[in-house]
Design a protein around this nucleic acid. Structure first.
Length: 556
DNA sequence: CCGTCCCGCCATTCG
DNA sequence: CGAATGGCGGGACGG
């Protein structure tokens, strides 16, 4: 019995508790907060039982440790985990999650919990708050997260990549016997997707910006990418191999020592898919191609995510008006590389003020996000402070004051993100209703950014609780016009989906996208939230002698 | 046989 | 240094 083998069944002595498929679940449910419980009590119980053990017509074998593999699946585990929390928790309540507690209550090794937490974290449903603790956010941020993920996914040209891959794979199958290992025609594919975006989570640790420094590679990032694929895929279906294919090309360079790497990637995707599935965001389906059926998943989560109901968390114009010179400057630089030069001089003067300004300046002034050790250290200390406050045993409630210092950077980034998004929208296409429109001025001032600058996009979030903003690093504004390719939507023609849900949607509106103008769906743009922000910003900028791609009638 | 994916060793990073 | 994290892939399980 080698040390490297999966222990057989439950013969080992350490598995002392009599298990039943659902016993664990029951205990959990009854242990869950009473106020959360009712709603789905029976429902979830059934679901769990059904979803994970199809035709289990006779669960008569009660007393036996029918601890089949499925009872320990990540999916079920995740399901059990999720049951303990509300989808939309009261931010003022104690939404702390203790790894140890969860692990023991769910009867699993910590390792498994990490798996779940990682993908939940990638969706911002939780965030690490302290050492062995996470903060539960539920789905309160999901909309925003998806919104951004989708956007980034589009910028990444994922839909295009997928289309190509599907096409290519289909071809390969057709002319299969030709074992041509050379597919150097990666051409278009590699275009703008060299460094790609990178995802950071809570806090300000910009560790490993672009050239993925060792860590923080897998799960979290992979999970986000995976989700992006769904949000961008035409028929909202993504097959594992295609996903793996795309996700591989990104991190590691070309030298994809495929085969093994591919296999590993797929394994990881299964993990992610499983928790995504218990989140009811995706569903397993099969795509039937000429060459048999392939496993795939279909997005069944929200389609039209808006910016969150109720009070919009977005920064308001008033915020912009309150900016101090330095701040505006920083913002400027984030949004427009060109301004950098001009800003450079002014910077000197404003540089040494209070420490916080310095800090903010350092963190956000340089777009090519600096792996500079000193900066990272700085960022880290900030984050640390925040965490301390967060996990202070004595202060359940957020410490109100004193946050100003850490608040600052976040705010700035937030602002930048918004401006970036808005500018992008304006540059890529004005709203149909807008009368005044300039003919697609693709950032005239910024022809080609030299060094892949990563623009941090922070999703706004009320820092009342949970603190810490998270970021999604995106590549420079895609300059390359998203060349409207041939109307090849035929690529997916040969696919059929055979799953209950897939069948439900006949035809489906997938023809879109081929129409350039129509491509701008009713996507909720930032403008909807704060229509004047752009003008205000531009006014400010102009007063500084900077010009940005403008949408409204350029008055000069 | 093969699609899934659990399990846990052990490298990394944190404190 | 020990503890917390989490990459990674062998090979078990179920169909």
């Amino acid at each position: 019995m080698g040390p490297l083998t999966t222990p057989k069944k439950g013969v080992e002595g350490h598995c002392v508790d009599p298990w039943t498929p659902t016993s664990n679940l029951k205990i959990l449910i009854s242990a869950a907060s009473p106020d959360i419980r009712n709603r789905e009590k029976e429902l979830t119980l059934e679901e769990a039982a059904e979803e994970y053990s199809k035709q289990d017509a006779e669960e008569v074998e009660e007393g036996e440790r029918m601890t089949s593999r499925k009872d320990k699946s990540l999916g079920l585990l995740c399901h059990k985990f999720l049951e303990r929390f509300e989808d939309f928790p009261d931010p003022h309540k104690d939404n702390d999650i203790s790894l140890d507690d969860v692990a023991s209550e769910l009867n699993v090794e910590r390792r498994r919990i990490y798996d779940i937490m990682n993908v939940l974290e990638s969706l911002h449903m939780v965030s690490r708050s302290a050492k062995n603790h996470y903060a539960w956010h539920g789905r309160t941020k999901l909309s925003q997260t998806l919104f951004v993920l989708k956007k980034v996914g589009e910028e990444q040209g994922y839909h295009r990549q997928m289309r190509q891959l599907r096409l290519r794979l289909a071809e390969e199958e057709a002319a299969e016997e030709k074992r041509r290992g050379a597919e150097a025609q990666d051409k278009e594919n590699r275009e703008g997707s060299k460094e790609l975006f990178f995802v950071e989570l809570p806090g300000v640790e910009f560790r490993a910006a672009s050239v993925n420094s060792r860590k923080d590679k897998s799960l979290r990032v992979m999970s986000q990418k995976f989700v992006m694929l769904f949000l961008v895929a035409r028929p909202r279906v993504v097959s594992l191999d295609i996903a793996a294919q795309i996700l591989i090309g990104e991190d590691q360079g070309e030298a994809s020592l495929d085969k093994n790497k591919f296999k590993t990637k797929v394994r990881r995707l299964y993990d992610i898919a499983n928790v995504l599935r218990s989140l009811k965001l995706i569903e397993k389906v099969h795509v039937t191609e000429e060459r048999g059926r392939k496993p795939a998943f279909e997005w069944v989560g929200p389609e039209e995510f808006t910016q969150v109901k109720g009070q919009s968390p977005w920064v308001r114009e008033s915020d912009l008006l309150c900016l101090k010179p330095v701040q505006t400057l920083m913002l400027l630089r984030l949004v427009s590389p060109d301004a950098e030069v001009k800003a450079a001089e002014n910077t000197k003067v404003l540089t040494s003020r209070s420490s916080k300004e310095n800090c903010a300046k350092n963190l956000f002034s340089n777009k090519r996000f600096t792996r500079h050790p000193s900066l990272m250290k700085l960022a880290k200390s900030i984050e640390e402070d925040r965490r301390k406050i967060n996990s202070a045993p004595s202060s359940p409630a957020k410490s109100a004051a004193g946050d100003a210092s850490v608040d600052f950077p976040n705010k700035m980034a937030q602002l930048a993100a918004i401006c970036k998004i808005q500018l992008d929208h304006e540059a890529s296409g004005p709203k149909p209703s807008e009368p005044a429109r300039t003919p697609l001025p693709l950032t005239p001032a910024t022809p080609a950014t030299p060094v892949t600058p990563l623009i941090p996009v922070l999703l706004p979030q009320q820092q009342a609780v949970g603190g810490g903003a998270y970021a999604v690093y995106v590549p420079p504004p895609q300059l390359r016009a998203a060349a409207r390719p041939q109307p090849t939507s035929l690529a997916v023609r040969s696919m059929t989906f055979d799953s209950p849900t897939a069948l439900k949607r006949p035809g489906a509106e997938e023809t879109t996208e081929s129409s350039p103008s129509k491509a701008q769906r009713r996507e909720t743009s930032f403008r909807d939230v704060s229509p004047k922000l752009g003008e205000i910003l531009q006014a400010r900028l102009k007063s500084r002698g900077v010009h940005l791609p403008s949408r409204t009638a350029p008055r000069a």
